[in-house]
Design a binder for these strands. Sequence first.
DNA 1: TGAAATGTTGGGGCG
DNA 2: ACGCCCCAACATTTC
Length: 438
Amino acid sequence: MTDISIFWFRRDLRLQDNIALNKALSNSKKVLCVFIFDENILNELPEDDARVNFIYDRLYLIHSELKKFGSSLLIYKGTPVDIWGKLIQKFNVKSVFANKDYEPYARKRDADIKTLLNENEIAFNSFKDQVIHEKHDVLKADGTPYTVFTPYKRKWLEIYKPVAPENLSKVDSFLKIEIDFPTREALGFKASSIKVKDYNLSGLNEYQQKRDFPDADITSYLSPHLRFGTVSVRQIIAQLGEEDDVFLSELIWREFFMQILYHFPQVVTNNFKPKYDSVKWLNDKTDFKKWCEGKTGYPMVDAGMRQLNKTGYMHNRVRMITAGFLCKHLLIDWKWGEAYFAKKLLDYELSANNGNWQWAAGTGCDAAPYFRIFNPIEQLRKFDKNLAYVKKWIPEYGTLEYPEPIVEHKFARKRALETYKVGLEGVDKNAGKQKTLF
DNA sequence: TGAAATGTTGGGGCG
DNA sequence: ACGCCCCAACATTTC
C-alpha cells in the first residue's frame, strides 16, 4: 500500500485559494480528499436542511473537478472519530492536512483526531485559512484580547498586509482514484426548497448609502459562502477598493466575534457581561411563537421573520430590529432568539450569531446599551418608507387578516427599561450583601 | 449600528 | 417699538 496524505475538507469547500490543500499538494505526491458528514451535527438537523443540501451540492462540484485530475472526493457519514479510525485502517496514511476551525466543538474534534492520528504516528497539519487574522494575531499591547470593536479594528487594519489568493497548483499530486459520488438519498438527505444564492459584489459601490434599506437589495449574499468556505476571505478582500471600507468593516466584525468566541467560550451559554444575569425575562411561549412566525403586528419585524422563514436570509438592519424586538419589547431571553436564527439562517455561524444577539440584548461585549431600544415604527418610517419590503414579505399587510400589535410600543419600552434596571440593581444589592460577610 | 425627554433659541403674533 | 408668549426647530441629556 502506498503512502498517502489526506486533505480533510470541513468549512473550506473550494479548490481555489485553499491554504491547507495547497500545502498538502506541495508536500505529498498522493493526496486524497475526504469529507465527513458529521453525525454529531446532523443529528440536530432536519433531513431537508438547506445548509446540508448546499454542502452536498458544493461537494459534488468539487468531486467533478477532482475527476478531471483523475481523482475523487471521498464522502463519509458518521462521527469523525469512527471515520478516521476506518480511514487509517483502509489507507496507509502518512499525514493529514486541514484548515483550522476555531469553534469550541471543532477545536475539541480536531484535538481528538490529532490524538488518534499521532498515536498511529500520523502527522496532523492544520493551517490558518478561514480568516485574515486569527485568535492571537490581534491583541492589545498587554497581550490580552480586545473586547471593543473600534480599537480591535484599528489594530486589525494596522497589521494587515494584502495577501494574494493562491491558485490550485501541483494538481498531479492528487491520488488517482475513481469512486462514485453518493446520492442524496444514500446519505439520508432530502432536497430543500430553500437555496443558497450565488454571492454578488455588484452593489458594493452603493453599499454605504443603501445598506440600511432592505428593499434596495444591494445585499452581497456573501455570508453563507464565507461560512462554508466556498470562497476565501482573501479572494473577497482582493476585490475591494479603498472606498469599500464600510464593507471591509463587516468582514472585520466577523473576525472580531470569532476571536471573542475563542477567548471567551463561556458566551455560548452565558451573558458576556454577568451583571445582566439577574434580568428577569418573561419568556412567554405564545409571544415567542408569534415572533417566530412573523405575526407580531409590527410590519418591519414580521417582514424580517418571514423573509428568514421563507428564504434562510434576513437583511442586516432587519436582524437588528427583530432581535431587539424579541429582547426588549417581548422580554424574551436572547438565547431563544439565537437558537431560532441558528436553525433558520443559511449563514449561521456560532460566533457571529451569538455576538450579535448579545449585542442586541445589551449583554455582550461592546453591545448596545440596554436603554437603546429600537422603535419598530420609527425604523419602518426610516428604512422602508414606501413599504416595499413589508409588502413583499407580508401579503396580507393592510387587510383585516394582519394582526394587531402584540404589545403597545410605549408600554413595552417603559417595561423593558424598568426590567433591565431592576435586574441590574439586583446585582448591586447582592454584591453589597457579599461584602458584609467579611 | 436609538429614541424620548428635556433644554435652548429665535421668529412671529399680539397687546 | 417693545416685551411677552407661543412654539417650531434644533441641541443636549437621559434612558
